[in-house]
Design a protein around this nucleic acid. Structure first.
Lengths: 192, 192, 192, 192
DNA sequence: AATGAATGAGATTTCATTCAT
DNA sequence: TATGAATGAAATCTCATTCAT
């Protein structure tokens, strides 16, 4: 009997799942296919995940964590200027999506929820963005009557939607123009 | 066997499908359930639609047409001022989503296209928005270097994403604040 | 409402059934398709035939009657010589199959029986052949110990099987060579 | 869940299919019934065969192989005399049909291939018979102008048709009379 | 007599999950 | 732990037949 490190088997299942979900869509993929792709027995799948959607959720959580880390690092590198922070943060997400297109699409894509996919739908928290906007408001650099919660949520929707559209066909735009456009439309960015 | 007015059966199936899709999600609903809800025989479903996704597509197309019509009417009522047009157009869509929450969610929701849903995923064309932006650019009322195609697509993502989030729990915001926020973030809206 | 002569409707259904059965096979064809092809309402089918297999049976019976008539005419034209009669009879059947390939294939072909096809399977009676052989036996022109019933049945199997094989691809042989071969192998034909 | 010897399940399915096909006909039998008869789950059928017709085809191929082997053995046992070979070969097939009536009927019977049965319809190759006839022709023991291909095909049709007719009711003839009659009508057999 | 919308029994097929090895 | 043959609930789709018009 094959003896691999536990993490090896789990990692193989995650990779297999990610690859198949991205290629064929969440619903068209079944657990047997994931196990086969991972070169594991069909029963082994259930040693690591209770079902297909648990694996999907794990992929989503890891993707979210990756994006969060990328944002934090980018903001840390940026100076204290809000505009600089916004731009760096956006650039970090665009880079992430570019480097992990499968993970991004599987985690945020339309072809995503599933028959029995119950748990809370994964989405980036709008908290950090909302708080950053509030800080600007306090400093008087942003219209006082803007609903920052709503604006933060709206901005994130835009970011996700635009990146998914871009990943559908990366020739649609350069990463630079994406960053530029998203930055300009960001609530914190002043316009002429 | 029951004889009803022609097209009655189709209308019943559309209504039943919309209702069930909205309640349970595209994948959890099967054709038998739709037919039963419509008080029709299981085979009758297939007299009107080749499969579940054809019905879904029809719902989507009707929703799209409804939104388009609402936008056109709103813009026609607005004067020639671009800002007024933008705001009216947004208000029209918010009203549509508010009045047809099931149709909006089923047509645009993350609760996704699904397994065999092949046809082109429905999404509003970003054309009209892009052209409106371009006109403003020509008139010098919008930054010359903005990528209007990209901005239009980004704006629509924002609008859809925000409305879906709102419909998940309409207490999250008033329709007025939604319109206000979306209008402010619209690419055509100048900021202080 | 269309008013046609009764026989017209029945004839149309028979023609439509023959054509569809030959093209697609007995099982792949359904009553709705037959009615549609006959340009009649789906319900009209049941005015003339209780089900698909009744129509099939009617086709078979007509085919058998046609073959019988052709044989009788051929034998009548032949003189009193048995060999001449055999050859003419065979030629008549080959001509029939050649002129009505659909009817022959539908009536005798392998792709024939059906789910609920109950009635007696259609096959040419071996009676006339057996009696002709018996007459030859009495006259001392055929081996006394030949089982004429069996021989007659065997010959008919050969004729039908060979003609079906031929109709599958008529380039396989000329009608003349078919007649020649079948005649030579006929029990009544002397060899060497 | 039950664990049986590998291939046991396949063998059970083949036996169940043969039995049911022979009893009720190819079309009246469904995969569920086959699985049930084999005392296996409905899904197990699809582990071994893609559909009903794959199982049927397997039965046909095995039948064909069995007949071929029986013929080869019989001819090997016979001496070098052609007539002896012909008679032994026929006797072998009659014995096979007698011992495996279900397999013979299912494989060759009018109770036809059916709806979706696509693969090449099974039939014995007429090659060996044709070549044997040609050899006799070369040796001058058979009329030079006989079309041996056609004669071989005709003979096989006769054999199959006669055996099927016999199996419909074995009281119709003794195996010996069948062999005798088929042998006499065989193209290679001289007549008085 | 003719129609065709409606019907629902029944067949096919998939796949998450189990469990003896 | 790992395995994969076996399972059966459930979904899709077909089509012979009915019957109000």
């Amino acid at each position: 009997m094959p003896r691999r490190k536990i993490d090896d088997a789990q990692a193989r299942l995650l990779a297999a799942g990610l690859s198949l979900f991205a290629q064929q869509g969440t619903e068209r993929v079944n657990t047997n296919a994931i196990a086969r792709r991972a070169r594991l027995g069909v029963g082994t799948f259930y040693t690591y995940f209770p079902d297909k959607y648990a694996l999907l959720r794990e992929i989503e959580l890891r993707t979210l964590a990756g994006i969060r880390a990328a944002r934090v690092a980018a903001v840390a590198q940026a100076g204290s200027q809000p505009e600089q922070q916004v731009r760096r943060s956006i650039a970090a997400v665009v880079a992430f999506a570019s480097q992990h297109p499968e993970a991004y699409r599987v985690s945020f894509g339309r072809e995503r929820a599933g028959a029995a996919h119950r748990g809370p739908v994964v989405s980036e928290s709008s908290r950090p963005t909302a708080e950053a906007l509030r800080r600007l408001q306090v400093e008087g650099r942003l219209a006082q009557d803007l609903d920052v919660e709503l604006a933060a949520r709206a901005y994130l929707s835009m970011e996700v939607g635009t990146l998914l559209w871009w990943l559908d066909d990366p020739k649609r735009a350069t990463p630079e123009s994406l960053v530029e456009t998203l930055a300009r439309l960001h609530p914190a960015t002043p316009r002429s």
